[in-house]
């Protein structure tokens, strides 16, 4: 039987999610047994040719030519899976969606005129149909291999959509929101990271994006009762998943 062809593509992002794939280490060899990695710039020089059974896309759409490229990739793919906060929610660079692109250019670049970008950074799903989204900044490599296995054997990936709290409680980690009044985004954030921050007594800052049916308004109200200002609350949401959190907040209220 032929191995399914995989292509790994990148748009505006830090490459961290692609590195997570390589962090599979010896399991990466198992992956090569089962799949043909036909395009993956981070690891090989193989040129972009033909069609793919699965396209894995990292990064957000933030330039005009990326808008065309993603359509081309979609046309070459049977399934398209986005990986990471950038591809799934627009990434940290989506902060510019709430400001002026000219201002940002002037703050950062010595010669802003040469920067030719769109005024927004948007997730892949706003441009083409996406079959499956993997959240996280970066993604969890176990979730990644689970997704590929699911493709192979034809099942639905067993990736949680419930809150991080469930993961925390399973691990027996005492809740820092309740016991220390830390502004933890856990109750409105997807599980999947293995409760990395709460494990070290640090509040969750939402790498995995909003969970299904996230009641952000109510949690922020509780943060305000704990003494945070409204502005500080919004800043908590304005990280790598700012676009998704703010959207969820508006849609629910």
């Amino acid at each position: 039987m032929k191995r399914p062809r995989i292509g790994v593509f990148k748009f505006t992002s830090c490459d961290g999610c692609q590195l997570s794939i390589m962090n599979l280490e010896e399991k990466f060899l198992d992956l090569l047994e089962l799949f043909d990695i036909a395009y993956f710039r981070e690891t090989t020089d193989r040129p972009l040719t033909g069609h793919f059974d699965i396209s894995i896309v990292e990064g957000s759409i933030s330039t005009a030519w990326q808008k065309n490229d993603i359509v081309d990739i979609r046309e070459r793919s049977r399934y398209l899976i986005t990986i990471g906060a950038c591809a799934t929610a627009g990434g940290l660079q989506a902060l510019r969606n709430w400001g002026s692109i000219t201002d940002y250019k002037n703050y950062i670049y010595p010669s802003p005129v040469i920067i030719n970008v769109l005024s927004t950074s948007t997730p892949i799903s706003e441009h083409v149909y996406v079959d499956y989204e993997l959240w996280g900044c970066p993604i969890n490599e176990k979730a990644f291999s689970e997704t590929l296995i699911s493709f192979l054997i034809g099942k639905k990936p067993g990736i949680p959509i419930y809150s991080l709290c469930m993961e925390c409680k399973r691990m027996g980690l005492p809740c820092i929101l309740v016991s220390k009044s830390e502004p933890c985004l856990g109750p409105v954030t997807r599980a999947g990271c293995g409760a990395l921050c709460p494990y070290f007594q640090k509040p969750c800052y939402g790498c995995f994006g909003p969970k299904e049916d996230a009641n952000i308004e109510s949690l922020l109200k509780q943060f305000q009762n704990m003494g945070l200002t409204q502005k500080e609350c919004i800043l908590l949401l304005d990280k790598m998943n700012t676009y998704a959190y703010r959207k969820a907040k508006i849609e629910r209220s």
């Binding site: 399991k27 198992d30 590929l148 809150s163 009641n215």
Partner: peptide, 30 residues
């Protein structure tokens, strides 16, 4: 409007007993 549906209450409740089961597969297992 207040509930976060985070599931904390059910996880700390000593009588909540709900479970679900799933298949855990590794790439090396295929």
């Amino acid at each position: 409007s207040r509930c976060l549906a985070c599931g904390n209450c059910t996880q700390v409740c000593p009588t909540c007993f709900c479970n679900s089961s799933y298949d855990r597969l590794e790439l090396s297992g295929i």
